[in-house]
Amino acid sequence: MSEERKVIHEITPLMHKDVLYIADRHKKEFTYPIHSHEVYELNFVEHASGVKRIVGDSSETIGDYDLVLITSADLEHVWEQADCHSEDIREITVQFDFNMTEDNFFGRNPFKGMRKMMTEAKKGLCFSMEDVLRVYTQLDTLSSIKDGFYAVSQFMSILYELSKSTTARTLATSSFAKIVIEDDSRRVLKVKNYINENFMHEIRLPILADMAGMSPSAFSRFFRLHTGRSLSDYIIDIRLGYASRMLVDTMKSVSEICFDCGFNNLSNFNRIFKKKKACSPTEFRENYHKTRIIV
C-alpha cells in the first residue's frame, strides 16, 4: 500500500460559546469526504435511497430516510452518493457540544436516558423509521427557529424523544470505535475484557467459562442470553473491528493484519470479512483512502 491517507484539518462552524450549528439544505449529490470531528452530530437524510452510509467499520445502503447520532471525536463517517439518483436530497445536520457528564446539570435524573444514548452513540447510533416519524416535525422546523433559546429547547426535545427509542442500533464495533467495554454483568464484563486483551491469540471456551464460574455449556447459554450473540460471533466481531481499524490506521498488509488479529487462515479471514462488511479487506481500505477530514 503506497498511498498515504490525506487528512485535512478544518475548524468546525461551532465556536466556543455556540450551542448548536444547524445546516438544512437541499442538494442533488453527496460530495463531502470521509471525516471526523470533535463535536457531536445528529444527521438526518431524506429522499436519498441508494446512498451508502459509512460509520466506522459499518457500511450500509440507506433507504429514503436516515437518522444517525455520532458522539465520538475519532469515529470517521461519510454519506456517499453510490446508487442514489434523487434530484432533491434533503440533509439536516446538527452539530452540538453538550457536556453530559454526571457532575453538572445534565447529570440529574431527567437526563439519564439521554446520557446513556450519548454513550451508545460513540459507536454511531442509527434510528428506525418509527423514531424518525416521532421527531420529524421538530427536525423539519428546527432551522426556521430564529430565537436561539427556543432552537436549543426544541433540539433537546428531539434528543429526549430519541433517547426513549427501543429500536435504535449501534453501527461501528467497539474495537474499531475505541470504546471502553461496559456491561451490567460482572461475569460478562470480565470475559469481554479478557477477549479484548487477548483477541490476537486463540481463545478457548473452557477458560472463559472458568472465569465466569460456570460449565462451558452453561456459560455459552448465559453469554448468548446476556448479549444476544453467540460467543464465537462476539469474538469474530471484536477481531474484525481491530482488523478494520488496522486497515485504516496502519500500512500493514492484509496478511499481517489477518494473523495479528487472531485469524489463522488468510482465505478464511477474507471470507468472513466480506460476509460481515460486504466488501473485501482491500476494498475496505480503499474506501478510507479517499480524502479524510478532521473537523
Results as ranks from 00 to 15, higher is better:
85 H>F: 13
79 W>S: 07
53 R>S: 15
74 D>A: 11
54 I>T: 12
86 S>E: 09
61 T>H: 06
67 L>V: 12
62 I>Y: 02
53 R>M: 15
77 H>F: 03
82 A>V: 02
47 H>G: 06
79 W>F: 09
87 E>D: 14
73 A>N: 08
67 L>R: 07
85 H>N: 13
82 A>H: 05
95 Q>L: 10
45 V>K: 07
60 E>H: 11
63 G>R: 14
84 C>F: 02
72 S>H: 12
57 D>I: 12
89 I>M: 07
56 G>M: 12
55 V>L: 15
69 L>F: 07
86 S>H: 08
47 H>E: 06
49 S>M: 06
71 T>C: 15
46 E>I: 10
93 T>R: 04
57 D>A: 11
54 I>L: 11
46 E>W: 00
73 A>Y: 06
46 E>V: 08
87 E>P: 02
90 R>W: 00
54 I>M: 08
49 S>T: 05
73 A>C: 05
87 E>K: 09
89 I>H: 01
66 D>I: 07
54 I>Q: 03
72 S>L: 10
77 H>W: 07
52 K>E: 11
64 D>M: 13
89 I>Y: 00
65 Y>N: 12
62 I>Q: 05
69 L>W: 06
71 T>V: 00
88 D>G: 15
83 D>K: 11
97 D>R: 01
50 G>V: 09
69 L>S: 04
65 Y>L: 13
81 Q>P: 06
61 T>F: 02
50 G>H: 03
55 V>I: 14
59 S>G: 11
52 K>C: 13
90 R>G: 10
58 S>W: 00
